[in-house]
Write a protein that binds this DNA or RNA. Structure first.
Lengths: 224, 224
DNA sequence: CAGTAAGACGATACTGAGTCTCGGCAATGT
DNA sequence: ACATTGCCGAGACTCAGTATCGTCTTACTG
């Protein structure tokens, strides 16, 4: 029966005090005192007071990055959708701890902001991955990369929050559905890239024909 | 020739010092001293040191909220797309000031995080508006509201950042195109209400197909 | 004109987060 | 037995942000 490490004692003390008195009403001195340690030790283990709530965000972000690096999906969107599952599974694995943290981030503005910033880091990682994947493929635009990254993150967050609120009995299934919806949102309905024979391309738009025809003509003559 | 108000003197002093020594290297005392005022006066005019960089974010958020309230668009997505233009126009109106702020938020992590949090507030407002609009309309889901809000914000941010970097000569046009692309993303592709008969269009060009396809796609999505 | 009420500012003290340095102590390896 | 390494406590320090009190100006009013 080893006694828990100093780091864990600090985290336990912090969560306990946050629940009892609230976040702002708890000082780092209080946390250290309850853990039977000194203030300096707290800052050795956690960079800030907020950090004790989000201990392993950096590690998780690294895992997602690794997953993307070693991914062999046919499209960037599929790779990112696959990688974001790691995040959801991490939260599910935390179980009740994630729920208690959600109770805090819902009520304490400083923690909510911190959470938002963390999410933005995932979105940025995804955007950069998609952009890199698209490099050289002229049929994609930077805006699309931006939209895809935002959509994947939103889909994940939506399911995660539902689970945190106890509204989702099967979040793994739900996140698959949500991500499929995102993928189908971005897959063009026009078939392309077939082998030989005739190529039939059909576009459909609500734009008036009168303005389109000259625009397409100049496009064909002068290039994009 | 009235001398500028204390608030403006503080803002000027702050921006000047941030550019000279950097953000972290500048204390609130420094700002107050250069402005010829006291530290207490600084905190009377700005809630925090970061606030001097983002003075009127709350006001702008309120304007967007009002715009949404008094909007009479046929779809929620159109209303939100319209409202987000206010944000872009606000930045364009600031001109060089926005550029200098971007230089700061690009390099100072604390300010970048603050910016991210501000953006998230818009996204939340949009999501809530779309959700409220969808209430009672069973053909929409909460996930769609989430995705739409994220997409509109992403489209806006994409164009805004391009303009801030000096890559966009006509951001107003670009944001219209980007928002049209977002709208077309969420309008179901299933052709309905087509009045019979085939549409046959044939063009011939020497342009390479790889560059033409994306150009035509954006043309159809965003208009000429 | 005299009196007064309100608002802007300065001075000061305080709390608390985060940084830094030094010094002790225990476990480990040679 | 001795040195090294790593964890910890103590304490001083900087700075953001809050709160209080006193002063001065401005403007309004009788």
């Amino acid at each position: 029966m080893d006694k828990p490490t100093a780091r864990d004692r600090l985290a336990q003390a912090a969560i306990g005090l946050f629940n009892e008195r609230g976040y702002e009403q708890t000082t780092v001195d209080d946390i250290a005192e309850r853990a039977g340690l000194s203030r300096a030790t707290f800052f050795r283990h956690y960079r800030s007071k907020e950090d004790v709530i989000f201990p392993d965000h950096d590690r998780l972000l690294g895992q997602v990055r690794d997953r993307l690096r070693s991914s062999s999906h046919s499209t960037a969107l599929a790779a990112v959708s696959d990688a974001v599952r790691l995040v959801l599974l991490h939260y599910l694995d935390e179980g009740d701890l994630a729920r208690r943290r959600y109770a805090l981030t819902s009520t304490v503005p400083a923690l909510r902001d911190r959470e938002i910033v963390s999410v933005a880091r995932y979105q940025r990682l995804f955007r950069e991955f998609i952009t890199a994947w698209m490099a050289g493929r002229a049929e994609y635009t930077a805006l699309q990369a931006e939209l895809m990254a935002a959509a994947v993150v939103s889909a994940h967050n939506h399911v995660l929050r539902r689970w945190l609120r106890g509204e989702s009995p099967d979040p793994v299934r739900e996140v698959d559905q949500a991500l499929n919806q995102v993928i189908s949102l971005f897959t063009p309905r026009t078939p392309e890239g077939d082998a030989g024979g005739a190529t039939v391309v059909a576009f459909r738009t609500s734009q008036p024909l009168d303005t389109l025809i000259p625009a397409i003509q100049t496009l064909l003559e002068t290039g994009p």
